[in-house]
Amino acid sequence: MLGLLLLQVLASCLWLGHSEVETPFAACPQFFYAGHPPNDALNPDNPAWICQRFRSSYHYATLYDRDRRIPVYSAYKYQPGDGRRPHSRWFVEPQLIDNNVNLKEMEREWILIKEKKFTLDQIKQSQAVPADYKGLGGLDRGHLSPSGHQFSIENKTATFTLTNIVPQDSSLNKGQWNIYESKKMTTKTKTKGCTTTYVITGAVPGNTYVSDERVNRPSHIWSAACCLVDEEPKDAWGAIAENDKNEVEELSLGELEERLTDLYKGGVTLFNNACPRQ
């Protein structure tokens, strides 16, 4: 009887090893400082932990909310490069269709339907699809891990998956949030001499939905960064914006965690208390 139980446990562990969605970031801890993701206060009721894989490489990590069909956050290393912005060809995540699907990389919706024989309804059940983002007046496809913070064309292309996208206010996405991402982040990392910068960018779930109530419209967009110099954390900062205003508030890491603790109704820790909070 004991032998049978051990075999069942072993089989379960082997099965989990095939799912890069279900095992919490086991395949991609490198996108978190010291391998520590944020604490469980951010976890939704029906989560998926995605190591975002494209062309056989991991590019960033995403905690995804299957019920609201938006990412909770994406975590990555800030490594902007000169590679051009890729064409906006949107991907979806095969592993959100079925835990037993042995497809480990993001893929185009039409390929999953035509070549892999999935139905559109199967794909739509636990994630957003391109049609969900068509005709959304005043809203953009807002990247959590932005292509401009990635180095190569492959890195940048990997950000164009709907598991990394939220409905973001158009004026904010093209205005102050874009300024923060493209100019202020660059200034901060250069002036502080960061050798490695870990970033976690997230979206606070809102009370409204778009696309026939399928996709949640976040109430806030936020971002946190931890700057390392010679592998030691030397500085950290945060930013937050309401998702209906073209305004970004810059904060210390501690202030951002306090704000998120209030919004999520639970104590939020983003870098395992390892980075400066003041």
Rank of each mutant, 00 (worst) to 15 (best):
Y33E: 02
E109L: 15
S88Y: 11
P86M: 09
P205S: 06
L253M: 04
P86H: 08
A274G: 10
P38C: 01
V101D: 11
D98L: 07
S12R: 06
P80H: 11
P94R: 04
E213D: 14
V229A: 01
T119C: 08
I165D: 03
E115T: 13
M1Q: 10
H143N: 03
L144F: 12
E255A: 15
G254Q: 12
N246L: 10
P167N: 00
I200M: 03
I240P: 08
P233D: 01
F32Y: 08
A158G: 00
G142H: 08
L14G: 02
L103Q: 14
S223M: 10
W177Q: 10
A75P: 00
K192G: 00
L16E: 12
G254T: 14
W177S: 09
K183S: 05
Y33N: 00
L136Y: 07
R84D: 15
T187M: 05
K77M: 04
K192Q: 03
P167K: 00
S74G: 01
E255G: 09
D121S: 11
K104V: 15
E93C: 02
Y60H: 11
T189E: 00
P233K: 03
E242K: 13
E258W: 02
A224E: 06
G202W: 00
H87C: 05
S211L: 01
C227T: 03
L5D: 12
T186Y: 06
F160K: 08
S126E: 11
P47F: 13
L42A: 03
K245S: 14
K188W: 10
A48M: 00
D45Y: 00
I179E: 09
N100A: 15
W222K: 05
C227V: 00
K104S: 15
C275K: 01
L103P: 10
D169G: 05
E257L: 09
T197R: 01
R85K: 08
T208H: 02
R141Q: 11
W49L: 00
I70V: 15
S57N: 13
P233R: 02
F160R: 09
I165N: 04
Y264G: 06
G35K: 09
K117W: 14
N43V: 06
G175K: 10
P71W: 10
D169Q: 07
V101R: 12
Y64M: 05
W222S: 06
F31A: 08
Q168R: 02
V199P: 07
